[in-house]
């Protein structure tokens, strides 16, 4: 029998029960804010999609606002999305960095959210 090296920790699921004592149920204020920020980042594209699809409903009714009006609407929406993404981006990147640099500090970064 050759002596195999068996990396026990490499078997899937092996280290899960031992690792990371369950994420806490309630979070301190700062972490809570960060989690809600992540939720907002997740909701943003959904809101964007719904609003992008709005012109479809308009044009079906006679006498819509026309291509010019739709253009204005879409570009304003577009700028709004960019601004929202820009506002969310900085704290999210900070969260990302916090999550990646100290591996243990923020284990299971988004367990509180819909992931």
């Amino acid at each position: 029998m050759p002596s195999y090296w068996l990396p026990c920790a490499s078997l899937p699921g092996y280290d899960r029960p031992m690792k990371a004592p369950r994420a806490p149920l309630f979070l301190e204020r700062k972490t809570y804010r960060r989690r809600r920020l992540m939720d907002a980042a997740r909701i943003l594209p959904v809101v964007g999609l719904v609003m992008i699809l709005l012109p479809v409903l308009w044009s079906s009714s006679e006498g819509g606002i026309g291509t010019a009006g739709e253009t204005v609407y879409l570009f304003v929406l577009w700028i709004g999305l960019i601004l929202a993404a820009g506002l969310l981006s900085r704290p999210l990147r900070a969260a990302l960095r916090r999550e990646t640099t100290p591996p243990a500090a923020e284990a299971g970064g988004d367990r509180d959210g819909v992931s």
Partner: peptide, 13 residues
């Protein structure tokens, strides 16, 4: 261009 915009805006997903 709106499709990619949504994907990028939703990068966290």
């Amino acid at each position: 261009y709106l499709g990619p915009t949504l994907v990028f805006v939703g990068w966290w997903w």
